[in-house]
């Protein structure tokens, strides 16, 4: 597989604060690579270093197999960026904004016209081409922000938290769009602190905490990194301590919680966890109502690796 981006040992300090601490990631061609981490973990800083916008203290960054630098115009021409903050000109209309940013990459007028049209279709802003950004709702503004970043059909695209403060409808539209871009052959780096999004969208993921990648791999690989692999909940009334003890003694079970009506069991990887538990309960003569088995989320992965949850900010 072709490695599009390789970051090794990246260190970035803001005076006292170490924003990136020997961060390494590698991204393959044609995948959506998720950078998942809580606010302030260094996602934007990482992207800005890769784009040669920020000076950094140590490390190497290679894009398309070549050293990235501020003057690497050849590389820059194949990169697109959708920044975290909406970055468009208020005094230009939607069409003019997209055309302007396209013009930074594409000289030919006819080609530009075609690309701008395509970008407008892509983000479904056709009804708003003559609007000034100020008149657009938050979600539409975000879509304009995206259009300006992808209009020149870059091979490598960075999305920095494109769904923050976006209504659910626009959010789905955006996530679908990113999938389409990948299907058309672009490689995408997607940052977010919403694990559901990353789980749903990304092919591979790096989890970031305090400027460091604490885990990298596919969702499967990440789940396998932690011992908890299954969360089973069973609704059953009046379980006795002796029965609970039997469940607890099962080989894969490492945590158990019972509140009088629902039994929650966390178990490590094993094929028959649910069946084993159900057997024990039925043998003891209990009638069971609902049974769930869930896979651990990225939040569980993050929790287990860092000891804190992703959700609280």
């Amino acid at each position: 597989m072709n490695e599009i981006l390789k970051v090794e040992g990246l260190v970035k300090r803001y005076k006292e604060l170490i924003a990136l601490d020997h961060l390494s990631i590698s991204v393959n061609e044609g995948e959506i690579f998720g950078l998942l981490g809580p606010n302030g973990s260094g996602k934007s800083t990482c992207i800005n270093c890769i784009l040669s916008l920020l000076e950094y203290d140590k490390g190497s960054i290679r894009v398309f197999g070549k050293e990235m630098s501020p003057k690497a115009y050849e590389l820059k021409s194949q990169i697109g960026i959708v920044p975290q903050e909406v970055a468009v000109y208020d005094s230009l209309t939607v069409y003019e904004n997209i055309d302007f940013f396209c013009g930074l990459y594409i000289r030919d007028k006819e080609e530009r016209k075609k690309l701008v049209r395509e970008a407008i279709d892509f983000v479904a802003l056709n009804d708003f081409v003559k609007f000034r950004p100020k008149k657009l709702s938050g979600g539409l503004k975000r879509r304009l922000n995206i259009a300006c970043g992808i209009v020149h059909k870059p091979k490598l695209i960075f999305f920095d938290e494109p769904t923050v403060a976006v209504d659910p409808q626009s959010r789905n539209r955006i996530l679908e769009g990113i999938g389409e871009l990948r299907d058309k052959g672009a490689t995408i780096i997607y940052t977010s602190h919403y694990m559901e999004e990353v789980e749903q969208l990304c092919d591979r993921i790096a989890i970031l905490d305090k400027g460091n990648t604490i885990a990298e791999g596919t969702i499967e690989e990440l789940r396998n990194m932690i011992k908890k692999s299954e969360i089973i909940s069973i609704e059953a009334g009046g379980l006795e301590e002796a029965v609970l003890e039997k469940v607890r003694e099962l080989k894969n079970v490492y945590s158990l919680d019972y509140d009088g009506s629902t039994l929650k069991v966390e178990a490590g990887s094993g094929r028959h966890n649910v069946i084993d538990i159900v057997n024990i309960l039925q043998e003891a003569g209990y009638s069971l109502r609902k049974i769930f088995s869930e896979q651990p989320t990225l939040n569980d992965v993050f929790l287990e690796l860092t000891g804190k949850t992703l959700r609280d900010e």
Binding site: S52, Y73, E74, K76, P83, L104, G149
Partner: peptide, 16 residues
Amino acid sequence: ADVSGEAMRLSVSPGG
């Protein structure tokens, strides 16, 4: 680029 996002976009573009 450290003042506005629009300038950041100019900075990452291939134009001098």
